[in-house]
């Protein structure tokens, strides 16, 4: 479970990117994280993963405080950044070996998982090439494989479908469903509301750093008071802010 309690983050001279945010991401659900550009989604995800430190509040990853025990907390999740340009000078396989060693993976398990995910995402034939030679979508795929090979219970994915071809996009969505079904956590941010509507069990909407909604699509319909598409409800909630 991921638990954020009264988390805030301010940049520069008083720009509050995240304002007193409290949120619980439970096991067994795919949790969508939505919001307009600059709403604070990526900042929140960066605080959850320890890239940024929260100015106020507490973030627990499976009951481990990321600010107090960062190394322990980081073992609990796999993270895909919105920028897949990772270690371009390394070969795909070198990057995955590096990630495996960082998470202290057993050699046999690592080989198994590299083979499994590389085959699913159709990357097995290019693993010996440098990442800089990959297309944007392939870089996204290698970042996804790197985030998942150590079999984390919590997946945190920032715009994971960007750049993926339809087949890989479908595969990843199925993987997310399966992972959540097993009682794990999937938190992912997206701008594509159709994807969120079809895929997510729950959505959290953030606007100007504040949480404006957190619940199921049905709960959202009740809140807005109309049986609208997610797009219209989203716009209504965001405009209200």
């Amino acid at each position: 479970m991921i638990k954020l309690s009264n988390v805030s983050k301010t940049f520069g001279k008083g720009f509050k990117a995240v304002d007193n945010l409290s949120l619980e991401i439970e096991e067994g659900f795919i949790h969508g994280f939505l919001g307009p550009n600059g709403a604070g989604k990526t900042t929140t995800l960066k605080m959850i993963t320890g890239i940024l430190k929260a100015d106020e509040g507490e973030i627990l990853i499976n009951d481990i405080d990321i600010s107090k025990e960062p190394t322990l907390a980081k073992k609990e999740f796999g993270f895909v950044s919105d920028n897949p340009d990772l270690f371009l000078k390394l070969k795909g396989i070198e990057y995955l070996n590096f990630v495996g060693s960082v998470y202290g993976m057993d050699k046999i398990k690592l080989r198994e998982n590299i083979f499994k995910y590389a085959k699913i995402l159709e990357m097995n034939e290019v693993l010996n090439n440098k990442i800089e030679s990959y297309s944007h979508g392939m870089r996204q795929k290698i970042a996804i494989i790197g985030a998942l090979i150590h079999e984390p219970k919590i997946w945190i994915l920032d715009e994971p479908l960007t750049g993926l071809d339809p087949k890989s996009s479908f595969t990843l969505k199925e993987m997310m469903k399966e992972h959540a079904k097993k009682g794990n956590v999937v938190l992912f941010s997206t701008h594509v509301l159709e994807v969120a509507e079809k895929l997510c069990d729950k959505v959290a909407i953030i606007s100007k750093g504040k949480l404006v909604f957190d619940g199921t699509i049905d709960e959202m319909k009740n809140k807005v008071g109309e049986d609208e598409s997610l797009e219209k409800m989203f716009l209504e909630l965001v405009d209200d802010e």
Binding site: I93, F115, A118, E125, N129, S133
Partner: peptide, 25 residues
């Protein structure tokens, strides 16, 4: 252009040896 792409034979790939995390860093 970037580097030349070669097709990978998965069976011949060198998967992690036992150099440990520090060695990989």
């Amino acid at each position: 252009k970037g580097s030349n792409k070669k097709k990978t034979d998965f069976d011949k790939l060198k998967i992690s040896d036992n150099r440990g995390c520090f060695g990989y860093l």
